[in-house]
């Protein structure tokens, strides 16, 4: 059955309409969960607000379990799902750069769009920075082109990397998520006790 568009069940012409609808749903959930506030988001790093971790982990776990069941019931062909290819060293570098950018900027690209929608100037500056960053990357691309393509491991899944089934990976993920939910809830209680000037 699925995925519908790559299988040609939904014609390509609908692609952009669907993109818009999916984007609206995505943006709505992000904003409604409180991702339009950078202080909400960065709370995850200081222990006063773990909303990012809760939303993020729940979403990953739900989608993971859902995909596995969809595959089991034959509703979706997991072979046709785009699995992000792994480029080991550039990805490590990129993730570290993004980590610093995350703490400095307080947004990630998706959340900054929703923050612009409700009128945050810092989000507009962040998106401007994003534009500039990608422009700089493209301009200086020849200097690190080789590095950019290094460490290609192809579309390897977590299960393939560790030599276990992806169903087991999902279970491990759920257990880690539940433990994380509990631990961060305890941390948050303690940190918030000492904070008075922050509105959540």
């Amino acid at each position: 059955m699925g995925p519908l568009i790559p299988q040609g069940i939904i014609p390509m012409g609908w692609d952009f309409v669907i993109a818009l609808l999916i984007g609206i749903a995505f943006g709505f959930v992000l904003e409604a969960s409180g991702f339009s506030s950078s202080r909400n988001i960065t709370g995850v790093f200081y222990g006063y607000n773990f909303v990012v971790l809760r939303v993020f982990f729940t979403a990953v776990v739900v989608a993971m379990i859902g995909l596995q069941y969809f595959d089991y019931f034959g509703w979706i062909d997991l072979n046709q799902i785009y699995v992000l290819p792994t480029f080991l060293s550039p990805m490590i570098v990129g993730a570290i750069i993004m980590g610093v950018g995350f703490v400095l900027g307080g947004f990630c690209p998706g959340t900054s769009y929703t923050a612009i929608a409700i009128g945050k100037i810092d989000a507009m500056v962040f998106t401007g920075g994003l534009f500039l960053g990608i422009f700089l990357f493209s301009e200086f691309f020849p200097f690190f082109e080789q590095f950019y393509y290094s460490g290609n491991m192809g579309s390897i899944t977590i299960g393939e990397f560790f030599g276990i089934s992806n169903n087991l990976v999902t279970l491990i993920f759920v257990v880690i998520a539940v433990i994380a939910f509990y631990v961060t809830w305890r941390i948050e209680l303690r940190v918030r006790k000492n904070m008075t000037q922050y509105k959540f």
């Binding site: 992000l84 990129g94 993004m98 400095l104 307080g106 990630c108 994003l130």
Partner: peptide, 29 residues
Amino acid sequence: GGILFGIGSQFGRGCSSGAALSGTASSSF
């Protein structure tokens, strides 16, 4: 932060939604 995110997302083949969220959900290493 935006500039760093812009550069990092190109090396990382995606940002927090494309790589971290969708990537992990599709069990990508």
